[in-house]
Amino acid sequence: MSSPNQLVLLVGTQKGLFRISTELNRNAWNLEGPLIAGYEILHAWMDPRMPQHAYATANHPIWGCHIYRSHDAGHSWEVLPHVPHHRQGLYAQSLKAIWYLAPGHPTQEKVLYAGIDPPGLFISQDDGHHWTPLPGLNEHPSRDRWEPARGGFAVHSIYIDPRTPHRLYCAVSAGGVFRSEDAGTSWIPINRGVRAENLPQRYPDVGHNVHRMVLHPKQPDRLYRQCYNGTYRSDDRGNHWIEISQGLPSDFGYVIVVNPQDPDMVYVIPEQSSHLRTTVDGKLRVYRSSNGGADWEPLTHGLPQEHAYVTVLREAMDCDGLSPNGVYFGTSSGHLFGSHDNGEHWELIAGFLPRILSVKTAVVET
């Protein structure tokens, strides 16, 4: 008997968005796309507050930056009339790229947050039709110590504590992780215990190149981050960080994700180095920890283990939270891999897509 629901992967690529779906047994996959063809889709997701609604960032070197919205679970898309941007003249460009979109608190159905390059955080109160800057972060006193990273100069990894709409988190590349306790009015840097080997001070309060930060939805005081120098965990809302890089073949990487049902289960894909920026030793290995990063094990069954020189970017991995947990990631070579047993076994879901920039899962009603 078929399920009334589907698992959907929204896969953003350098040339458009792909919608890849399956029944909840995850036995066979259907691919649609490219949607929003020709645009770089850095981030796309289904809105957990409103079934069938989805959002995507779309960036194009000629046609500019746009936000798209879907009302039919990602089958079709419409462009919204306005985008977040800095006021003219503040920087050389008021908007270079839209890097990240995040839903507001579950009690705020129409609220969205956006992170952009040049680094800025914006809020919309009307489903993305209009945007307002949050100057507490955008004009933070430490901003003169932020600097461009190789992959961009942007705000990303935006999270709202599910217990309260007043506690927000975001990351800046390269600036660090910041937290607000007053709905975005003011922000404090939360980077204690995190190394920055490329800066004069080894443990600065700001200036960190954060590649990815995640908040666990069921244990919101638990945060993880993958940085230019190391992998870290915090158990106190980012006040202190513990390095958990030991046991990994490299302290460099872009992506880190958690099992939504288990705050101790975390996945990373280490990269060789900041110089090479491909999989370590040409082996495509996902590393999993079941104890919050105290120990790591490589997961390789079904993944190429020689001459696989690919990159997995910060938004190109996600977990579905089903039982057992499914894990999915996309590579710079356009290959999408998935596992429906916590990463023990992997299959190639789609190959030879354009360069994959983002992967996001959702269970939707059919």
Rank of each mutant, 00 (worst) to 15 (best):
S180C: 10
H211M: 05
L24M: 14
G326W: 09
S157V: 07
L248E: 08
D341V: 09
P354H: 08
R87T: 01
S70T: 04
K218F: 03
S274M: 10
N259E: 06
Q201G: 03
F337W: 13
H301S: 13
R314H: 11
R192Y: 14
G152M: 10
I62H: 13
T366D: 15
H216K: 09
K360A: 14
L101S: 02
L313M: 14
P34W: 09
Y169G: 06
D47W: 01
H140C: 02
Q272W: 12
A149Q: 04
L303Y: 06
M213T: 10
R26T: 04
G115T: 00
A73K: 08
Q246T: 08
W131T: 00
D144A: 14
R87S: 03
P135K: 00
R19K: 14
R355F: 12
H66N: 02
S273Y: 13
T311Y: 06
V172E: 07
P103W: 05
Q108M: 14
Q201W: 03
H211F: 13
N30R: 10
G175E: 11
T185D: 02
W146N: 03
Y224N: 07
K218Q: 15
P48C: 12
D262K: 04
W45M: 13
Q88P: 06
Y287F: 15
R233M: 14
L299F: 11
R195P: 03
E297W: 00
V83E: 00
P34L: 04
R237V: 01
R288M: 12
S323Q: 14
S186W: 01
A154T: 02
G136P: 02
E306A: 12
A362K: 03
A154S: 12
D161K: 05
T331G: 08
P270S: 07
A154L: 14
I36M: 14
Y55R: 09
L322R: 11
S333N: 11
G74Y: 05
Y113A: 00
N191Y: 03
N342Y: 06
S180I: 06
R195W: 13
L134E: 01
G351V: 05
L303H: 06
C227S: 14
G230C: 07
R26H: 04
D251A: 11
T366F: 05
P81A: 01
D182S: 01
G104V: 03
T185L: 03
E243W: 03
V280M: 08
E297A: 12
H340I: 13
L248K: 10
